[in-house]
Design a protein around this nucleic acid. Sequence first.
DNA 1: TCGCACTGCTAATACGATTTAGCAAACAAA
DNA 2: TTTGTTTGCTAAATCGTATTAGCAGTGCGA
Lengths: 352, 352
Amino acid sequence: MSPRRVTLAEVAKAAGVSPTTASLVLSGRGREMRISQEVEQRVLKAAEELQYRPNAVSVGLRTGTTRTIGFVSDTVATSRLAGDMIKGALEAARDRGVMLFIGETEGDPELERNLLQAMHDRQVDGIVLAAMYTRTIKVPKEITASPAVLLNALPKQPSVLPSILPDEVEAGRTAARVLLEAGHRDGIHLVGAGPRARDVPPGGVAAMERLAGIREVLGEAGVTIAGGCLCADWQPQEGLDATRAILASGRPRALICFNDRLAFGAYQALGEHGLRVPVDVSVVSFDDHPLASWMSPTLTTVALPHYELGRKAVDVLFTEIGHHRAGAAGEAEVHRVPMPVRTRESVAPPRP
Amino acid sequence: MSPRRVTLAEVAKAAGVSPTTASLVLSGRGREMRISQEVEQRVLKAAEELQYRPNAVSVGLRTGTTRTIGFVSDTVATSRLAGDMIKGALEAARDRGVMLFIGETEGDPELERNLLQAMHDRQVDGIVLAAMYTRTIKVPKEITASPAVLLNALPKQPSVLPSILPDEVEAGRTAARVLLEAGHRDGIHLVGAGPRARDVPPGGVAAMERLAGIREVLGEAGVTIAGGCLCADWQPQEGLDATRAILASGRPRALICFNDRLAFGAYQALGEHGLRVPVDVSVVSFDDHPLASWMSPTLTTVALPHYELGRKAVDVLFTEIGHHRAGAAGEAEVHRVPMPVRTRESVAPPRP
DNA sequence: TCGCACTGCTAATACGATTTAGCAAACAAA
DNA sequence: TTTGTTTGCTAAATCGTATTAGCAGTGCGA
């Protein structure tokens, strides 16, 4: 079944040189160490013919660096969000010839500790600690055993770790501008949070920041928010209920839903009342859930850049690893990744 | 930042014994090798106090087994399906104290080769080769370097690898029975494939098998399929179009949609024609996409057991690794994982 | 002829564990 | 006293690579 792997010693013997020489040639230090052209060619030929590949475990033991990083998240399965984030991380890792360990903690601190230890036991070069929904987390002290970054999360206590986050405030501004630019000034309702700055569900930072951006832009434009409805869990059912409540007390001209699932529920409520999107009511939302392009009409939404978040996290992690090797301390910088708007069919100018 | 790891040698010195003794005690072979109670206690105490953890890289080099497996899939991001499969694999791995490398090939054979090599370079104990949509795949020869299993995929050429697949034929039977048990015998239309056995989109095995199960059960009950519509890609838009076509030529009493996205489109088409689900038309589907429980009315669907598939794959992989260690050859067994029906609101008896 | 620098390569060690083979002491049997 | 057995531990080799230190040979100037 598995033909034993070829070792460096075997390559050396085939080329008629010492393992030292073979190692030097194959690690590109041949020139530097004055290995002759001829010997160099012999070694390369032998390696090629024997299909030599260095044993990464051995290299890891010898050099202390394994070209491996860990990706630890609270949950990996819920929604495809996680998938895209992992995909971004994966590709950034691949670009560097690095492999990814993954693990999930399910929010259990003990599992998290065990996982981090298991990764450090395997000598990972660094760790991405990710949250699936943007929030503040308690940074486990085990993380300090290697360079690390926080993805989609902010440290509860001050910490030296850099964070990578979507730029939610700007996303809020974007959503508001989409409506303003379409000509909306009246009857703008919020579904999920607001209208006051303090009307946010507990825990998540997304709600707070999106709301801040929305309020800022509408405020500056002299537009007052017609109403808002705080939802705890941002599921379709709540969007349905909230929108029904709004409809019971008047006719909205535009809705800013705090995510696409809420918008999905909102569509249903509007349908019940015979209101058409976007002719009667414009809808703009956040996340760019796959759902958003299936809804009818398709939903204009400010996208969570999961893929880019994942990539960025690995990029930052590698500069962190670089600092670490150079003996420098890490910086607790916060990196914000832009959230692009996906313009679709759900926004139109208000009817006169 | 990172306090250097404690080594076995340091534990041994602290306990005043040789590294050999320390190793023996810590690997539980103390009794067997006649280490005295007293020395054993000293070693354990030292290890505890120094917080000793074995360096997995070193152990990997020495023993050749890394307690690490690889999970290679064509795509990890599309849909949450992947997530659940990985989650299942992850938990099964965790139960065994094993870590998971992940990688994705994007269907590129060269990437796949590189990935498998990179994993073997790191001495993984085994590999799960997964497809996100059930299909037949070309098994790369690099896979033979370690034990392996196929997840959600069948080998194109005969192979020694075991496969783990959802039981799609039985799922087809289940869907058909759901309608029969509700009392449906007439006006049953298929959306996505059928009505003839050969009306399936190319590539996927799910369509063929689901259709076979449906035809078997309906046939045995003496029920004829009223019609069917082959769709290539199983997206909402196609479900919409297909259902419109069906409605143009008559009134269906029940739809079997080949997946939930098609059903989503079908709902829209039915809505356009003023037909209510399930009063006028019953709908049953496959996959149990998250969408299914958001639709209104909620959708009765036969679930893809992604989580269980992932778990099962790792379970089978480990028996495979066991065989391998015992020197036995692998068996190309096909394991079928049941697909449970999620009964919701979209099926009702036909109106008289 | 001697010393010196340079060229081109290798011996030996280290990384951190596991495992084989074996040693010294104590004791028992002959 | 010798021989053999058991007990309780350790020395040394090993896994596959990277790296430091150094060795033999050559050419050159003095």
